[in-house]
Design a protein around this nucleic acid. Structure first.
Lengths: 122, 122
DNA sequence: CTGCATCCAATTGGATACTG
DNA sequence: CAGTATCCAATTGGATGCAG
């Protein structure tokens, strides 16, 4: 997309900075990675994103919904069922965020070695 | 890199989760994007990453140095000069994090529109 | 089950002053 | 200039209890 005016995340007051703050976030990354497998219930998301609390998952999903990255499907059942799904916009985030998750897994050995050597030096 | 054992960011206790938490972070993203232009002084980084405080920049750089993503070059001069540079490992992070920055800039119009419509609905 | 409300604890981040 | 130290404000995040 061409920029009129040019947006720049490096400028503190640029709106794109608020968007970067949302997507460059560990919870966002994990939720989007989880939803890359397809539409998912709230409960299953909590299981997929190991260690996330209900409060944080709810807030993360609301923010992602507000930003047009996720849609919320509510079923009028008892007990209630709510499913979440990436939007078309959200699917354009899949690759970048999966790349981040993959980087963390692929390079953790190097990172751990670097930490050990850094801590030994100090 | 093949994984023995398999690392999984979705597991709360996996070491790769701590690495994801560091890289999936707005300050990390902006600092790595800035350093993608090459070796840079502390002061110039502060200017490039508009709005970052000295404290946060220092902490971010220390953490990145500890994880082997950035190296610190100290010159014995008065006034002091310290330059920061991406390591080989850090350069493998350039593309993923620049992709995130680019996403924020490229899709901010859609995000703003989504927010407006969400806020109007509530 | 989904998720809000509340209360707290912990972390993050800003501002200021100061040092080598 | 490149930090460090300190103090404080704001945000994040966990735990619990409750409602539809």
């Amino acid at each position: 997309m061409s920029q009129y005016p040019a947006f720049d995340v490096m400028t503190a007051t640029c709106p794109s900075r608020t968007s970067l703050a949302r997507i460059a976030n560990k919870w966002t990354a994990m939720v989007v990675i989880a939803l890359s497998a397809g539409r998912m219930r709230f409960r299953d998301l909590r299981t997929a994103v190991d260690g996330i609390s209900a409060k944080v998952l709810t807030e993360t999903l609301r923010d992602l919904e507000r930003d047009g990255i996720v849609t919320r499907h509510v079923f009028a059942e008892v007990p209630p069922r709510v499913e979440y799904e990436l939007t078309a916009l959200g699917r354009t985030l899949q690759a970048p965020l999966q790349a981040l998750g993959h980087w963390a897994e692929a390079h953790i050995a190097e990172v751990l070695a670097a930490r050990e050597s850094y801590d030994a030096r100090q």
